[in-house]
């Protein structure tokens, strides 16, 4: 069995006085794609942000390959090989497509070359001088993922990459995540689209009220789809 890349124990987080995470425990093994599923507001994005060091005052423990990273500033955490594809894509409106693509520094060897990225997404080359936010939603999502792949991150935290996108684009993102998996990139995914999640993920964590309550296999998700969709409210 591959070794554990990311280990999170008893993670607790707050926004001012209000507690958002109540002791999250999860593991992600090297090369796995793992999904966090749950209703809006249960703490999925907060979990990703806590791992990335983007929220102050987080308690518990987070380890990357056994090394504690909780308390490090987020730029140091990123330099350990973690990349983030944020909610709503995070494309910068003051930067061109090319500038957005080149923004994250190369943090490790083995990142995708520009040639490979442009071969897969010719639009990012054709519209390199356009303002990043002028791209369509799907193209912006490709850009958000591509810039992290260029950086060489070995663990990618993806927050709802299919949100608001047409089915054809969702399929393209599915293929891209499968490509990443073949490259040995580990992914922790936040996703509400269960069909998409079962096609790309190895297993799923169900979150309720700031805690992981269940670990589900793909088969279990498919088998209990109706119940889970009702639970997610989608």
């Amino acid at each position: 069995m591959p070794e554990t890349l990311l280990s999170v124990r008893n993670l607790q987080a707050w926004y001012d006085e209000s507690q958002a995470l109540f002791g999250v425990d999860l593991d992600v093994r090297e090369g796995e794609v793992v999904t966090l599923v749950g209703r809006n507001g249960v703490g999925k994005t907060t979990t990703l942000k806590s791992i990335m060091g983007m929220i102050p005052g987080v308690k518990g423990s987070i380890a990357l390959r056994g090394t504690p990273i909780l308390g490090l500033s987020s730029h140091r955490i990123a330099r350990l090989g973690i990349g983030v594809v944020p909610e709503e894509r995070g494309i910068f409106s003051g930067l061109t497509v090319r500038e957005n693509l080149m923004l994250p520094p190369v943090i490790a060897e083995g990142g995708w070359s520009l040639e490979r990225i442009h071969q897969l997404f010719p639009i990012l080359d054709e519209r390199r001088n356009s303002i990043g936010t002028k791209l369509s939603g799907g193209e912006q999502q490709m850009l958000a993922i591509a810039r992290i792949l260029r950086s060489g991150a070995r663990l990618v935290l993806m927050d709802e990459p299919t949100e608001g996108l047409a089915p054809v684009i969702v399929n393209a993102i599915r293929d891209l995540v499968l490509d990443m998996k073949r490259d040995g990139i580990t992914v922790l995914l936040v996703e509400q689209n269960l069909r998409f999640a079962t096609k790309v993920s190895d297993r799923h964590y169900l979150m309720v009220h700031g805690k992981i309550v269940e670990t589900l296999s793909n088969e279990e998700v498919v088998h209990r789809e109706g119940e889970l969709l009702a639970h997610l409210g989608v």
Partner: peptide, 20 residues
């Protein structure tokens, strides 16, 4: 470009590994 991005969203730029 890094400066302009940090002006827009410093938290995300930092999460990319840049010492904002």
């Amino acid at each position: 470009a890094t400066l302009r991005a940090a002006t827009e969203n410093p938290g995300l730029v930092r999460a990319f590994g840049i010492n904002v």
